[in-house]
Design a protein around this nucleic acid. Sequence first.
DNA 1: CGAGACATTGAGTAGGTTCAAAGACCGTGG
DNA 2: CCACGGTCTTTGAACCTACTCAATGTCTCG
Lengths: 240, 240
Amino acid sequence: MDAEIASELGRCASCVIRREGLCGALKQDELLQFRRIANRRKFEPGENILQSDDDPDFFAAVISGVVKLTKVLFDGRQQVVDLLLPVDCLGQVFGRRSSYYAQAATQVELCCFPYSGFEQMLEEFPDLKHRFLEQTLDDLDSARDWMVLLGRKTAEERVASLLLMLATRTAITGTAHNGSSRPVALDLHLKRHEIADFLGLTYETVCRQFTALKNKGLIQQPSRRRFSVPDTEALAKAAG
Amino acid sequence: MDAEIASELGRCASCVIRREGLCGALKQDELLQFRRIANRRKFEPGENILQSDDDPDFFAAVISGVVKLTKVLFDGRQQVVDLLLPVDCLGQVFGRRSSYYAQAATQVELCCFPYSGFEQMLEEFPDLKHRFLEQTLDDLDSARDWMVLLGRKTAEERVASLLLMLATRTAITGTAHNGSSRPVALDLHLKRHEIADFLGLTYETVCRQFTALKNKGLIQQPSRRRFSVPDTEALAKAAG
DNA sequence: CGAGACATTGAGTAGGTTCAAAGACCGTGG
DNA sequence: CCACGGTCTTTGAACCTACTCAATGTCTCG
């Protein structure tokens, strides 16, 4: 019986969302129900996941890859309002209807839930709802941190902040986070232009700040999209 | 019996929070319980409500007045990350601990709940939790709208956006919101300096943009802190 | 290898900041 | 009631950071 459940759980058993995300809030039999309304979808870099005016027909969690959440002004000016990494969620709930665009920045795998089904599960499983609330509160906190960046930081501080944020969120290398700073390497999948839209700058300025940080020895850049941070603390200081 | 309850409900019966805020999610007997842990507090303009590093010992809802929620950089640069008007909430839940400062911008009356008691009520009354989730989602949406403003809008658009936001949120005059634009008057309680910290500008720039908008006829300014918007649509266009 | 997309660097410009001075408002006290 | 002081606001002039426009360089993929 247990084996049967385990096999039916299948890919859920080894999924990040189960380990660290929303699904972590579910008991095995709840997960089984939840799984029934879920289906995975893959997206190629640059592909649109949600358009502003779509009837947003699904809610989703990121399994792998990076999703840009952007807002657009009437004349085309863009602002990336969030970068979604694995475990993060995307989609509007409870009839909210602000206009976001979601776009795959890398190859992306999502676990998608039809809209109504997801809301129903939220009602049925209080722990799921609680987890969702916690994630939303975290999102709010980081949105506000970003407001400080956009409103008050210099170009160099912004770029440093982004690198720092990515370094702490996607620590690829053996980062034991022993308090002190240890070199961290990271792949930056975003184009300069996308970075600029996230930081409220132009891509030329982003470039210049990268070279500035390189010259100061705060980062190294083995290849165009690969960075390493020799001293996290120093970078944090440069980030404000 | 009903009369007894009603009298015990006292000021809750006529409170905004009950009508339009969190408490609207409660049944009468639940409200009675909730009320027991609540107490009202008043603050004078400029008074600190929460400091970053306080043990934040209460959660609160705004009954009247305006509260600034700000974040501060190491060297004193400030960013207002939210303006709390009546019905809005303030305070960290579930052990979150980002550093905000909350300051009364006007005379403020809050309904305060001790921290742990509030969390307990959230668990006990699912509708309350649901309402709280909805408010948090709304906060997230508006934080992201503000990110667009801070990252991509010009000084004039920012000022116009603020006025528009306040005009729609605190429609004082007989605004029947009949779709078309009707003149709206509003009291702007914030100092130029505070506005600047909300818009990511300096107060001098805010001043200049006010006069620019005045010259374009988009706003009138009978007194220093009183504004009126003759044509909301036009202002919206100027706000992007 | 060549074409296209992306990144880097340079030079000139502009929107917003900084520094500075003058003007308006408000409460207090003579 | 008016004068006074402090705070807040407005306006001006110089400056600077980041933007714009433009050219060159580099990666990638057919």
